[in-house]
């Protein structure tokens, strides 16, 4: 009997097999938190006007999602069931505050730009959703991978939406970084100088793209494309 128990536990803690890979790749496409589960829409609409803040936001969510899953999973047998949501919330809020304090020290201008939204990661449904659905009933390593996967799935949609919105809304790519590129439309100084322009000088920046409503349309179109191309997602009922 004693031997059998030891054998059962022999499965290595950090195994990376087919199942583990699926935990990472599934949320990127077949089970994407934004386009399939439609979670975390609020921040996806709000922060995606520019690519650079979206990348920072994506990194922050991957970090929070992964480590809150890890901690919840480690504590899963000790967390009292009556107050599990509050305990999860404390873990998430702790990690978000860590992200906020670090960002404030590392890149103050981006912190200024994102301040409110970083705080709102606490209420991001993806984080809490994964803690309830996965981390509280799985082992730490698998829960960690699931957190990373879902954070990446969220991030990839964020960056796609931000790419489209920044290009057509402001005519730039990666504005606010050293490699900022002004691609289409008049230069940033079109207020005083309308003659000089980059490519497609006739293009006037589309103000709709700057507003959150545009993200709604873009996410809608992304869901449409994904559903029509992926046979697994076709509703057979």
């Amino acid at each position: 009997m004693a031997e059998a128990k030891v054998l059962e536990k022999k499965e290595p803690t950090f195994a990376f097999g087919k199942n583990e890979r699926k935990l990472l790749t599934d949320p990127l496409d077949d089970n994407n938190p934004i386009t399939i589960q439609v979670l975390g829409i609020c921040s996806a609409l709000a922060v995606t006007t520019l690519i650079f803040p979206s990348i920072i936001m994506a990194v922050a969510v991957v970090f929070v999602c992964a480590f809150s899953s890890l901690f919840t999973s480690i504590l899963r047998n000790h967390i009292p069931k009556q107050v599990r949501m509050i305990v999860q919330l404390v873990i998430v809020a702790f990690l978000v505050t860590v992200v906020e304090l670090s960002l404030k020290a590392l890149n103050y201008p981006v912190y200024k730009q994102l301040a409110v939204f970083i705080g709102l990661i606490i209420t991001n449904c993806i984080v809490m959703g994964r803690l309830e659905a996965f981390a509280s009933s799985n082992k730490p390593w698998r829960a960690f991978l699931d957190g990373v996967g879902n954070g990446l799935g969220y991030g990839i949609i964020l960056i796609i939406v931000a790419f489209i919105r920044e290009l057509f809304g402001k005519g730039t790519l990666l504005a606010g970084t050293p490699i900022e590129a002004k691609l289409i439309g008049p230069t940033a100084e079109y207020f005083i100088n309308t003659t000089e322009s980059t490519y497609f000088g006739w293009y006037a920046n589309n103000n709709l793209m700057v507003l959150p409503a545009a993200a709604m349309f873009i996410i809608g179109v992304l869901i449409w494309i994904q559903r029509s191309r992926n046979p697994k997602l076709v509703d057979i009922s």
């Binding site: 940033a188 100084e189 079109y190 207020f191 005083i192 100088n193």
Partner: peptide, 9 residues
């Protein structure tokens, strides 16, 4: 703030 041209005027 975002449009450098506005302040330049």
């Amino acid at each position: 703030k975002d449009n450098a041209g506005f302040a330049k005027q």
